[in-house]
Simulated assay, not measured.
Amino acid sequence: MAETVSPEFALDESDERTVLRLTGDWTVQHVQDVDDALRALNVSSPLAVDVSDLGKLDTAGAFVIDRTLRAAGSAEEGEPEIIGDHPNATRLIAQIHAVSTPAPESPAQDGSIMALLDRTGRSFMHIASESIATLAFLGETLATCARMLLQPWKLRWTSIVAVMEESGLDALPIITFLSFFVGMVIAFIGATTLKSFDLEIYTVELIGYSELREFGVVLTGIVLAGRTNSSFTAQIGTMKMRQEIDAMQTLGLKPMEVLVVPRVLAMLIMTPVLAFAATLAGIAGGVMVAWLALDINPGVFIVRLRDSVPLDQFWVGMSKAPVFGLVCVLIACRQGLNVGGSVQSLGRATTTSVVQALFSIIAIDALFAIFYMELDI
Rank of each mutant, 00 (worst) to 15 (best):
L135F: 12
S131T: 12
I160P: 03
A128P: 06
L149V: 00
A143K: 07
L178D: 10
C145I: 09
I132G: 04
A128I: 03
S129D: 03
S167M: 06
T158G: 15
T144Q: 00
M164T: 10
E165Y: 08
E140S: 06
F124I: 09
L149W: 04
L169F: 08
L142T: 11
P152V: 07
Q151H: 15
A133Q: 09
G168C: 02
L150I: 01
L142G: 05
R156V: 06
H126K: 10
I174P: 10
V161M: 04
V182S: 01
V161N: 13
V161K: 10
G168R: 05
V163A: 15
E130D: 11
L150K: 13
H126P: 07
F181N: 03
A171E: 09
L178T: 08
S159I: 05
F180C: 13
V163E: 13
A146T: 05
E166Q: 12
A136T: 05
M164K: 13
C145K: 00
F180Q: 12
A136N: 04
H126V: 06
S179A: 14
L169W: 04
P152H: 13
E166C: 02
P152F: 07
L135G: 08
A128G: 01
T158Y: 13
I174G: 09
F181A: 01
E130F: 03
L150G: 11
A162C: 05
E166G: 06
G139N: 09
W157D: 12
S123T: 06
I132Q: 09
I127T: 08
A133F: 06
G183T: 05
C145P: 10
A171P: 07
F181G: 03
I127F: 13
R147Q: 15
F180M: 14
P152W: 10
T144G: 04
Q151C: 12
A143Y: 14
S129F: 04
I132F: 04
W157V: 13
L178G: 08
A162H: 01
I127L: 03
L138Q: 01
L142F: 10
E130P: 05
A146H: 00
M164A: 15
I160F: 03
F180Y: 08
R156L: 01
F181M: 00
T144L: 11
G168H: 02
L149A: 12
M184K: 05
I175F: 11
S129W: 02
R156I: 01
L138I: 14
F124S: 00
T134A: 15
G139M: 09
S167D: 04
A146L: 11
I160H: 03
A171R: 12
V161F: 02
L155W: 05
G139S: 09
A133K: 09
A143P: 01
L172I: 02
I175A: 00
F181Q: 02
W157A: 15
M164L: 12
C145T: 10
C145H: 03
T144E: 07
M184F: 02
A128M: 07
R147W: 00
S123E: 07
S167F: 13
M184S: 06
F180P: 12
I175M: 05
A128W: 08
L169I: 02
T176C: 12
M184W: 08
A146P: 01
R147I: 14
C145W: 02
W157S: 14
V163S: 15
A128Q: 11
R122T: 00
S167G: 03
D170F: 13
L172E: 01
G139R: 11
E166I: 03
E165Q: 06
F137N: 08
L155R: 09
S129V: 04
R156N: 15
R122A: 06
T176F: 10
M184L: 07
